[in-house]
Amino acid sequence: MSRIKLSIKGAAGVSPLATIDDQKVKLRKNSFGNLEGNFEATEGSVLKIYTWEIISSPLWLLWEFVFFVVSVFGIFDWGRGKYLREIAFEVVLHPRGDDTIVATVLREKGEGSPALGLSCATETEIRENEYVNTAKLKKRRKIVNWLRFVAWLCIIGCAIAIIANFF
């Protein structure tokens, strides 16, 4: 059993989650804005680092509808869609002692481009390392934006009709 320190650099705005053998790794932000966590690993432990967007959920249209209604037709939905990318990173560790794994979030965000750069003394076997669903998320976001636009046209139309009827 080796004690491993995980440090994720450049994670500002990404907020990834990490698991080791499907157990969550508690990540904390340090004074430099990097995420850090500690875990114990054995031979063949699987480390996963990933992000998930609500818009990639199977119920994405329902979620977006709920957000649109609750936020009073999107007026209060301020933090929407700053970062539209999902990271899928999976690596098998073969630790020979305590180590520090430094993972750097890479800037290239195209579909299939590598998501994280890894630096450590531990022998690793990368199974998956890419940005995923980028095209799908962009398409869904476009659909949501169009639906919002149509909804707003309907709202404005109804408002005009009500005002015209009132006066």
Partner: peptide, 15 residues
């Protein structure tokens, strides 16, 4: 996943 969605609702309620 549910909690991530719910947190966005929390942001809306904050506004």
């Amino acid at each position: 996943r549910l909690r991530i969605g719910v947190v966005r609702l929390g942001n809306i309620f904050f506004g």
